[in-house]
Design a protein around this nucleic acid. Structure first.
Lengths: 220, 220
DNA sequence: GACACTAGGTCTACGGTGTAGACTTGTCAA
DNA sequence: TTGACAAGTCTACACCGTAGACCTAGTGTC
């Protein structure tokens, strides 16, 4: 038989699985070589055979997230509509990992799915009338905006710890509630929406529309 | 004389000064109570008399950055133009601290300059035709986008360590240079712009225009 | 002037982190 | 059979945040 059962060998992919799980619900800072090593019955230093250092491990998490992007097939809709669905696909992949979305940025031009996404985005932008260089710039900024859209998702944040989330909401409510309505009439009257948007889907819808509308509007 | 010379007392404002300086050129992770304590000839634990914990210290840095925002006076330009200059003022304050810009987000609705900025932004958005709640949502997203614009400023990054920056650029160049021009025609031809935008001012100009154009475009 | 209170320091200690360097061991090719 | 090499181990170092007990100088009050 080729596969030894329960070989002592460490599987880097499984380590990334664990790291991703930890990072997802305790944040990337909570990922530690010692914790991972314990989970895999191995010495912390063993991990260094597979990951140069912690940054390298986090990069692997970023790659893993990017691998989940499923590109929509090109079709004959208008370039900006296609761009919208392309970016939606990107955001959809990130939404599963709100605290980790920024790990993808430095990997986008390195990992294959990121490159495919970028190439396609540039294609559509050029089709929309941008020069290649402008497309690069605009594309980069769109990606950054969308990543920050996900990392600052006010609903997903700390969804793993509902009581912490509740406490944070209460603190915010108290802080805004203490403001003088004369001095800050709009903030106080928009307090509800500022503390937490009504719907998560709407939040993402606005975010994506904003980015695409910006791109459409900036082109002359 | 009222002021004792060189009193042994710790001045929290000066501690924040040091922390800001360290964070600016080594990143917020490099700020440590021990380092700060040493710089102020004091025990690390002394700092806990003035800052609840490290998060509290970082919040103080965020407040400090927000305090630098100088709001433009209202005038009779169109709402979107006024919004543009308002957001430009925000970005200008952040640009001095590219690695630290996100510290401001959680402080914006707490610290006074942040509240003033937010109130004014809501005002302009409402003036532009948004409902108060939509204004809140759109405003939040604009702020987030601009913060991430600054934190991902590809030029400022590691400007303190020019050789590290050069190395990072070389790595990127090599990585993109190795790509197949048949598979990624646009990425390879836009490699220059993707690695590093031509001009920093242009980078910020595009970023701001994108955000404002998005807001203008989304309103129906 | 005596006295209690307290803000703001000190000291010690705990449990965590990344990771360098030298070592051992299991596996496979020649 | 014998090396070589990849992979895991062990030890150690220099950091980190911070809990808790303690000290001490200054201040306001009787």
């Amino acid at each position: 038989m080729i596969t030894k059962e329960t070989s002592r060998r460490l599987d880097p992919e499984k380590v990334v699985d664990s790291a991703l799980a930890i990072a997802d619900d305790e944040g990337p800072a909570a990922v530690s070589f010692r914790k991972l090593a314990a989970q895999h019955d191995v010495t912390p230093m063993a991990l260094y055979r597979h990951f140069k250092d912690k940054d390298d491990l986090l990069a692997a998490i970023g790659d893993r997230i990017l691998a989940d992007v499923v590109l929509p097939a090109p079709n004959d809709e208008r370039w900006d509509e296609q761009l919208h669905t392309l970016l939606t696909a990107f955001v959809t992949a990130l939404r599963g990992h709100p605290r980790l979305a920024d790990l993808t940025l430095p990997r986008i031009l390195i990992t294959e799915p990121g490159l495919a996404l970028s190439e396609r985005a540039l294609e559509l932008l050029v089709q929309g009338g941008f020069t290649v260089d402008d497309a690069a710039e605009v594309g980069r900024q769109a990606i950054c905006s969308l990543i920050s859209l996900v990392t600052t998702d006010p609903i997903a944040r700390e969804v793993s710890d509902p009581e912490a989330r509740e406490a944070s909401l209460r603190r915010k409510r108290a802080s805004l509630g203490a403001l003088s309505p004369e001095r800050y009439p709009l903030i106080t009257s928009a307090a509800g929406a500022l503390i937490c948007p009504e719907s998560r889907d709407r939040y993402y819808e606005i975010g994506l529309d904003l980015v695409v509308a910006g791109i459409r509007g900036i082109r002359e």
